[in-house]
Write a protein that binds this DNA or RNA. Structure first.
Length: 353
DNA sequence: GAACCGTGGAC
DNA sequence: TGTCCAAGGTT
């Protein structure tokens, strides 16, 4: 079942939504540039991440890596350091790899050809459409979570999020609706509507410029669309964390180069359930660390995807300066530059207060 | 196609 | 407190 759209209807959608966007659009820092590199970075950061969180990260990242050449010249370690705390760290690795590809394949210039853009690591159909339409005003469609919600309601699409059927219909609508000129504004207007009025909960239909055309509003199904996809239940995990400071440096462990939080640094950590009675002692022993007290110094709660974490941090001491892999010492004055995991940042923050 | 990948904030 | 969610991409 596919939605039909008359061309007069399409023009009306475009006119009304773009006029609304021109009136109410938020003043976001990446909206003050047409630099495809800067816009690309914002799009990568905004994936599954809130605007308020991204703003500071984007400013710092652009100051440190102002263009694709600078990013290509950087060490991956430093790119991860700038990303530390944002999550989904593969995005940072992909950015760095894509910057290298732009240098090698495109002379350091962000490509304009959609097929070439799509070949860059970490850039899928959405991000390609976003950068090309916003930076170059290319008539490329896009569908993100906002657009999916807006379309599902406007056209009363019943297929569940993530289903093949809904995906096909959403992209078909996006292709038919995107204007030949002003695609960047149109795409951003759709997302802005989803982010500010057509919200997941308690949408503000009273203020919506498209309310008159919304099938779900007419049918009273706005709150039930789009149909959510099933979610995995979350699991409780108990961790113990080892805090060792010596000569103004902290003891960290380098995570493996693949899997969760690949290549990041964290405080030595063990899962209580997997540790048996020995608890922290195995890693403490490996690092020659002596636990100073049996009582945790701080307790921290954290969530990672479908895990709910309760972490207790213990303080230890060691006489050893040189340690085998994966242990590393890092000066406490440089913690802000390191690719630390979110949990580790949280523990260190708690220790300091 | 489903699972995986992080985090902080709203309610 | 638990749950849901936010400008997705990769495997």
């Amino acid at each position: 079942m596919s939605t039909t759209l008359a061309s007069a209807e399409i023009r009306a959608f475009q006119r009304e939504l773009i006029a609304w966007f021109a009136r109410v659009k938020r003043d976001l820092p990446w909206r003050r540039t047409r630099d495809p590199y800067a816009i690309w970075i914002s799009e990568a950061m905004l994936q599954q991440t809130r605007v308020e969180t991204v703003i500071d990260y984007w400013r710092r990242f652009l100051a440190r890596f102002p263009n694709a050449a600078a990013l290509a010249d950087a060490r991956e370690e430093d790119v991860l350091g700038s990303w530390s705390g944002l999550g989904y760290y593969r995005r940072a690795r992909n950015l760095h790899a894509a910057a290298l590809a732009i240098r090698e394949r495109h002379g350091g210039v962000f490509p304009r050809d959609p097929e070439l853009v799509r070949e860059l690591p970490g850039i899928g159909r959405y991000t390609a459409g976003a950068v090309l339409s916003i930076a170059f005003d290319a008539p490329e469609p896009l569908v993100d979570g906002n657009v999916a919600r807006v379309f599902a309601r406007l056209f009363e699409l019943e297929a569940p999020l993530g289903s093949k059927e809904l995906e096909r219909e959403l992209w078909s609508l996006a292709e038919r609706l995107v204007p030949a000129r002003g695609a960047g504004d149109w795409n951003q207007a759709l997302m802005e509507l989803g982010a500010t009025l057509c919200a997941p909960k308690k949408p503000r239909c009273d203020a919506c410029p498209l309310a008159r055309r919304c099938r779900a509003l007419a049918a009273g199904s706005v709150e039930t669309l789009p149909r959510p996809k099933a979610r995995r239940a979350s699991v409780e995990v108990e961790l113990e964390v080892l805090c060792v400071e010596r000569d103004g440096a902290w003891l960290f462990v380098r995570r493996p180069s693949d899997g969760r939080m690949a290549g990041m640094l964290e405080l030595p950590t063990i899962e209580v359930a997997a540790a048996g009675r020995e608890r922290l002692h195995p890693i403490a022993h490996a690092a020659g660390v002596e636990l100073r007290a049996s009582e945790p110094l701080v307790q921290v709660r954290h969530t990672i995807t479908h895990h709910r974490i309760r972490a207790q941090a213990f303080v230890g001491r060691t006489a050893r300066r040189a340690l085998p892999e994966p242990y590393e010492w890092h000066a406490s004055s440089r913690l802000g530059e390191l690719p630390l995991t979110g949990l580790t940042k949280k523990v260190l923050r708690a220790l300091r207060s």
